[in-house]
């Protein structure tokens, strides 16, 4: 049973009334079908109304839902038993906050990487809540190089609160690891598709987010800093996270209008945690549509277009006239 959100309460109350009416009708052999149908359609209308008008902060809550499908959920649905996970950075450690490997999607062999969150406390402790250490990013570097060597396209799943802030992480060069990943990914000579499936938290997200196409699931978020972090710094009050979430423009439609992503993937109403297959199908269809286009390009063309894509991001003015990048 998925956890409930505060903003879902009116729906849940109606659903309870619906269940009560249904059991009353069954037990009492009374025909309540008119009332039942009325409530059922009211519920549908209310769902559409509530979920089409979510505040950014509410979307962030859906994006962080513990039952939301995570990287391995997608990989298992998309690749089934063709997936082979590979481990370790060959230098220090295997970081469970990042998974990497190869698998087959719709008949195509692909390389896969992603941040890995857990669904419960134990899993999350093991996965460090999806917050990578430098060795996680270096494991991703290994995978990127292997993908390039064997000419396999790369599929990246982004779902992290951010890179882990800890003593060991700093000692082993967290900043260098992220910078290196970004630079490597920008020039890797195979097609790269990125999917923000949950939380796209800052540099730790971008570290595996430089792709020819970048997509966001409808209820995912992508931001330069967490709303809580932004609120703590700019408002000096972490409880202003709601305001910060709005001000930073972190939801998929914002990123689409800012030209940062290439498309928004539909989710089942209420969020991807209600129907994993639905969400995975959105991802599969997107891969099937875009990968052949990218694979048909020459290597030079692919790299030049990727360069131009990120080159054009940003807005500034040259006084006195205004100019886009």
């Amino acid at each position: 049973m998925p956890l409930e959100f505060e903003f879902e309460r009116p729906i849940l109350e109606l659903e309870k009334r619906l269940r009560d009416l249904q059991s009353l009708s069954e037990e009492g052999h009374i025909d309540l079908s008119r009332e039942i149908n009325a409530i059922a359609s009211k519920i549908e209308a209310m769902k559409i109304d509530i979920f089409k008008n979510l505040e950014p902060w509410q979307v962030a809550q859906i994006a962080r839902h513990p039952q939301r499908p995570n990287t391995l959920d997608y990989i298992n649905i998309l690749c089934g038993d063709t997936f082979v996970e590979i481990h370790g950075d060959r230098e220090f450690h295997d970081d469970p906050a990042i998974v990497s490997g190869f698998g087959i999607i719709e008949g195509r062999a692909v390389a896969l990487i992603g941040h890995q969150k857990g669904h419960d406390t134990n899993e999350n402790l093991f996965r460090n809540f999806g917050m990578p250490q430098p060795e996680g990013f270096r494991k991703a570097q290994r995978l990127l190089r292997l993908a390039e060597k064997f000419k396999k396209p790369i599929i990246a799943f982004i779902d992290t609160p951010g890179a882990f802030p800890g003593i060991g992480a700093e000692e082993r060069g967290q900043c260098e690891a992220i910078a290196h990943n970004i630079m490597l990914m920008a020039r890797i000579k195979v097609p790269v598709l990125c999917f923000v499936i949950g939380e796209g938290g800052s540099g730790g997200a971008l570290a595996i987010g430089v792709g020819d196409r970048v997509f966001m699931l409808e209820n995912s978020v992508y931001s330069v800093i967490s709303p809580e972090g932004c609120a703590a710094i700019l408002w000096k009050d972490a409880s202003k996270a709601k305001d910060a979430a709005k001000a930073m423009r972190i939801v998929s439609s914002d990123l689409m209008s800012l030209g940062v992503i290439d498309g928004i993937l539909r989710e089942p109403i209420g969020g991807a945690h209600h129907d994993y297959e639905f969400a995975a199908t959105s991802v599969r269809e997107t891969i099937s549509t875009h990968l052949p286009v990218l694979q048909a390009m020459t290597q030079n063309d692919l790299l030049e277009r990727r360069y131009k894509k990120f080159r054009s991001m940003g807005k500034f003015k040259i006084s006195p006239e205004i100019e886009d990048a």
């Binding site: 910078a179 970004i182 630079m183 490597l184 920008a186 020039r187 800052s202 540099g203 971008l206 987010g209 430089v210 992508y222 931001s223 330069v224 800093i225 932004c230 710094i233 700019l234 001000a247 930073m248 423009r249 972190i250 914002d254 990123l255 800012l258 940062v260 990727r306 360069y307 990120f310 080159r311 991001m313 940003g314 807005k315």
Partner: peptide
Amino acid sequence: GARMQEGILSLMQMAKTSQTIARLAE
């Protein structure tokens, strides 16, 4: 670090600058 007031566009400057360094290295 990145400038929060420009949101995700600031984050993307990390990709924008890093890729030019990769090209320079070539």
